Simulated scan of single mutants.
Amino acid sequence: MPLCVGGDRYIGALRTTRSPSPPRAGADSRRHTAELEELGIIWDTADAAFAENLAAARAYFEAHGTLAAPRHGVALGKPVGQWLTNVRRPGGLGKDPVRARRRAEALAAIDEDWNPGARGWTVDWQRHYAYLAQLLDEGARLSAVVPGVTRHGEDIGRWLATQRREFDQLGVKAVRARRATAKAAAPTPSGRGAAAFQTGIQALAQYQEREGSGLPGRGHVELLPDGMEHRTGVWIVNQKQRRGRLTPDQLAQLAELGVDWAR
């Protein structure tokens, strides 16, 4: 749970600290601020509220595989669909550009397509596209996705028929093109994404070394040697959804650990 400094929530020994605001500017102070934020410290109630809604957004993604939630979407008891609608609006992430960039990065870390409008299409289109991609990833044939085939209550078959009828298969072409482009691009992992992938590999290998073989369930959390809790089950599901963006080396690492879809 994030700690709120300057708000009305204080935890443990921090109740006795005097930290109403981040340290003043300066190289050392910026470093200290970053270190404190890594511990989950939030400097004001606005950031605390954002963190709580971000946690709800993460829970929604884990359940749906996308942040293209309808406005009525709810997770952890919070109206995450309406919140995402609000933060996508101009200025919705706050007036401070540094804070806004940090918040956008936090959302992109959950789902890089959290703001479909920036890519030129609607939230509704993105949600149906994501569900169609999930069906195909699970082995469904495109010809079998007909009206009446649903996912999370959305009629994906009817949506697909609309794409064919009104846009000369534009929706289908977009799905195929995006999946083909992702595979052809063969991205090179770098930075935070690469480190997060290796942490997942470490957690999965540790699980198998202890359990003998197999893959953990979706809800499994693996405790790493440094004390970090890793949501290994959810991580595997997320890698499958992002399979087209994984490098051959990453797929090989997953396949070596018994992940069938990576072969």
Rank of each mutant, 00 (worst) to 15 (best):
E138T: 09
W83F: 13
P22H: 04
D155W: 04
L142K: 00
A48H: 07
V172H: 02
H220D: 07
R24A: 12
G117Y: 13
V80Q: 07
T16Q: 15
V175S: 02
G258R: 09
A75K: 10
A182H: 07
L67E: 00
G227E: 01
L107K: 03
A203E: 04
A140G: 01
R58M: 07
G117D: 13
L223I: 09
P187F: 12
E38G: 09
E35V: 12
R165F: 03
Y207D: 14
V175F: 01
V146A: 10
A25F: 10
N115G: 09
I110Q: 01
A69D: 01
A252C: 12
L14N: 08
A59I: 02
P147M: 01
W114T: 02
S190C: 07
Q163I: 00
V172F: 00
V146L: 09
L36T: 06
T66F: 01
R99S: 15
D260W: 10
R103H: 05
A185K: 07
P90W: 03
L257Q: 12
A34C: 00
A57C: 06
F167C: 08
D124C: 08
T17Q: 15
G91P: 06
I236D: 05
E222N: 00
R231S: 08
R242G: 14
S190W: 07
R103K: 02
G244K: 12
Y10C: 04
T45A: 14
A56P: 07
L54P: 06
V234Q: 15
L84K: 11
G219S: 09
L36I: 08
Q239G: 11
A205K: 10
R231M: 04
L215S: 03
T17G: 08
A184H: 00
L223F: 06
Q239E: 15
R151W: 04
K183V: 15
G219H: 07
A106H: 04
V145K: 03
E222S: 04
A63L: 13
A59L: 01
Q241P: 02
R165A: 10
R192D: 10
L107F: 05
R103C: 06
R99D: 14
N238I: 13
R231Q: 13
Y207P: 01
P116Y: 04
A63T: 07
T188R: 14
A177V: 14
Y10M: 12
W43T: 01
A133T: 01
E256D: 11
S143A: 15
G217K: 07
E256T: 05
P97G: 11
P22N: 06
E209Q: 03
T247P: 10
F167W: 11
P22Q: 06
A69K: 04
W121T: 14
Q241C: 05
R192T: 08
W43L: 05
Y129R: 14
H72F: 03
L84E: 10
P248F: 12
L54N: 03
T188N: 11
